[in-house]
């Protein structure tokens, strides 16, 4: 009997994977696809998407000279050269030994090249500038680097994603892998692909980073959020970006 059920189980798995292969369709859905048509329209129209207000400010910061080196971002980079950057990070910077996210990379530029004070974590200026940089990657596929040094960090991120925590004893995967597409209260549970960060979240009435979104989830499951400068955020982001590999960037996105 046991053998039979194992065989049946295997057959089901085989059939399911066969069906998926035959359909040849990516089963992944971005948060954009799970939104209603009115919100999609709001995001698509650059004069209705409130995140574009922050992009405007970010564009001004891009050309503003700063620090002892008296250099602006534009003195070293063209905005066009930022194409694909947000789709690639987190990555290990030259000479570094652990990955940094896009915000971390911006602050490295500020301290190393501009000789300026780093932006505060999730400060208005950091959000503005990262929104401007992320916009350059709009429409591009998420393409995490194939750096073998990232594997260990990514694996740790995967453990964080799948590990249960908090008073409700939930893991990220419980909702976003096992129950995505179903309802939590009135809201559809998304698959949690970070395609559009930083996002303008209507609930926040402001632009926010992926870290803020992750903290939000952790508070929701009655877990203690990571510390502000915790490396766990980066590891989790690495895992999420790998999970969303090939999906289309739609930053800066609107989410409900």
């Amino acid at each position: 009997m046991r053998k039979l059920s194992v065989a049946l189980g295997l057959a089901t798995v085989f059939l399911a994977s066969l069906a998926m292969a035959q359909a040849g369709k990516d089963q992944r859905r971005s948060g954009y696809q799970d939104m209603g048509p009115t919100l999609q329209k709001m995001q698509d129209d650059d004069t209705a998407n409130p995140a574009m207000l922050y992009v405007q400010a970010g564009e001004a910061l891009w050309t503003q000279k700063a620090g002892a080196a008296d250099k602006s971002c534009a003195d070293c980079h063209s905005a066009g050269s930022m194409k694909g950057v947000a789709a690639r990070y987190p990555a290990i910077p030259p000479g570094g030994d652990r990955p940094v996210d896009l915000e971390g990379r911006i602050n490295l530029c500020r301290t190393e090249h501009q000789k300026a004070a780093p932006f505060g974590a999730e400060s208005e200026q950091m959000l503005d500038l990262s929104a401007y940089v992320a916009l350059q990657s709009r429409g591009m596929p998420i393409a995490p680097p194939n750096d073998p040094r990232l594997a260990a960090f990514r694996m740790h991120g995967g453990q964080l994603f799948k590990g249960r925590e908090g008073q409700l004893n939930l893991s990220c995967a419980n909702c976003h892998d096992d129950n995505a597409g179903k309802k939590l209260g009135g809201a559809t549970i998304p698959q949690a692909h970070p395609t559009g960060y930083p996002i303008y979240r209507l609930e926040w009435q402001a632009l926010g980073s992926l870290k803020r979104r992750l903290r939000n989830c952790m508070i929701g499951m009655r877990a203690e959020p990571f510390d502000e400068d915790s490396e766990d955020y980066i590891d989790l982001e690495l895992y999420l970006m790998d999970r969303a590999r090939g999906m289309t960037m739609d930053a800066p996105a609107v989410r409900p």
């Binding site: 004069t47 409130p50 207000l53 922050y54 405007q56």
Partner: peptide, 24 residues
């Protein structure tokens, strides 16, 4: 403050146009 305005650049006389504005 940052402002985004969406209006058609041209219109026919007597046409009803929609003007949209967003402000930070």
């Amino acid at each position: 403050a940052n402002v985004l305005i969406n209006a058609p650049g041209t219109a026919r006389k007597g046409e009803t146009i929609e003007l949209k504005a967003l402000i930070q």
